[in-house]
């Protein structure tokens, strides 16, 4: 097995998740490709409704079906079984089956945006972490509790041997998010999915959580998929960045490439529309119009009605491919593609 493949943790190919509703079909995720290696972070950015959350919920098989359905594509999870590398396609598994339940929490940990709603209010933090450990590991309750305390200490919760018996409401927002991270990592997953983990907390706590995630990533060689709408947050934590718009990745590349040389008109417009803490104070340039309804995704390039560079007769007809323009920097825009008219 080549080194490159053993380093790989997850590979998503042409993933499509649609929702079949009475009023129409929502193509929430419509042909998404990416991969994440050990110790690396993929940041997915985009506005609400762009499909970033549905993408990771599909990876966890947490999409309710019906109305949701994986229409196409594969999610290959690379994992070790008895020191042998094996590859499972998550899309082929039964979401309620034993195999998928083994992957959830064991192979892939997940941290949600709102730890208050992600934890059950009826059980202590400890009960919930211990349950997660007992579900996946063949150890006794006492050992599991010890491990839970150890993880709580590792994520920076003071007096973990006492806090373990606290209920979620007794902790502050920042502490709850730390406990959530402890729970997600308690079975040593190879992949951590963080869905807007710092959106509900203050900047001071956000900085602590980002630092903590990076430390843990280094220690555990974690692969992380980090979802956010905050460009500055993603610039601090990600190695690669995927920019999503209406269910598709419109630009993908190394963080430095995306920030220093954004190519897609949407990425460029997004940067110009956001207030920044550094640089000259210039008037912001808003993106024209609104995000279209997900029931009526525009023909051709879905960004064309809001795009300054759109060419009539081409952009509203042809769907551009995600093409590599060098250095692994990919962009889905006809400007960078040779088109036959």
């Amino acid at each position: 097995m080549s080194l490159e493949l053993t380093e790989r943790v997850i590979e998503v190919n042409n993933l499509k998740t649609y929702f079949y509703l009475d009023i129409g079909v929502v193509k929430a995720v419509d042909g998404v490709d990416f991969s994440v290696d050990r110790g690396k972070t993929l940041g997915i950015i985009g506005e609400s409704g762009c499909g970033k959350s549905v993408t990771v919920h599909t990876i966890m098989r947490l999409i309710q079906s019906p109305p949701g359905k994986i229409v196409d594509g594969s999610i290959k999870l690379y994992r070790f079984r008895n020191n042998e590398l094996e590859v499972v396609d998550i899309t082929k598994l039964d979401p309620k089956g034993k195999e998928m339940r083994n992957i959830r929490g064991k192979e892939i940990g997940m941290v949600f945006q709102e730890p208050m709603t992600a934890f059950s209010p009826m059980y202590t933090i400890g009960d919930q972490i211990v349950e997660a450990i007992l579900t996946h590991e063949n150890i006794d309750k006492k050992k599991a509790r010890e491990r839970a305390i150890e993880f709580l200490r590792r994520v920076g919760i003071p007096r973990p041997e006492r806090t373990i018996d606290a209920y979620p409401f007794q902790l502050s927002g920042g502490m709850r998010q730390r406990a959530m991270i402890a729970m997600a990592l308690s079975c040593y997953p190879r992949l951590l999915i963080a869905d807007e983990p710092t959106t509900a907390v203050d900047v001071t706590v956000q900085a602590q959580i980002l630092d903590l995630l990076q430390e843990l990533q280094e220690e555990m060689k974690l692969a992380i998929i980090f979802i956010t709408h905050n460009l500055a947050v993603v610039s601090e934590i990600a190695d690669d960045i995927a920019v999503m718009y209406l269910g598709k990745i419109v630009e993908f590349g190394k963080k430095e490439e995306i920030f220093n040389h954004p190519l897609h008109p949407y990425t460029v417009a997004l940067f110009r529309s956001i207030p920044k803490v550094e640089g000259k104070l210039e008037r912001l340039v808003p993106i024209y119009g609104n995000v279209p309804s997900s029931y009526q995704i525009p023909e051709g390039c879905s960004f064309h009605p809001r795009c300054e560079s759109a060419i009539r007769g081409i952009c509203n007809v042809t769907l551009p491919d995600l093409i590599d323009v060098g250095n692994g920097h990919k962009v889905r825009c006809l400007i960078y593609q040779k088109v036959e008219v």
């Binding site: 900047v203 001071t204 602590q208 980002l210 500055a232 430095e256």
Partner: peptide, 20 residues
């Protein structure tokens, strides 16, 4: 401390953050 916690778009991880 508040200012040092603000995430920045400038590349490179900042050192010596006055973390609260």
């Amino acid at each position: 401390a508040l200012l040092s916690a603000v995430p920045r778009t400038v590349m490179g991880r900042r050192k010596g953050r006055a973390i609260l």
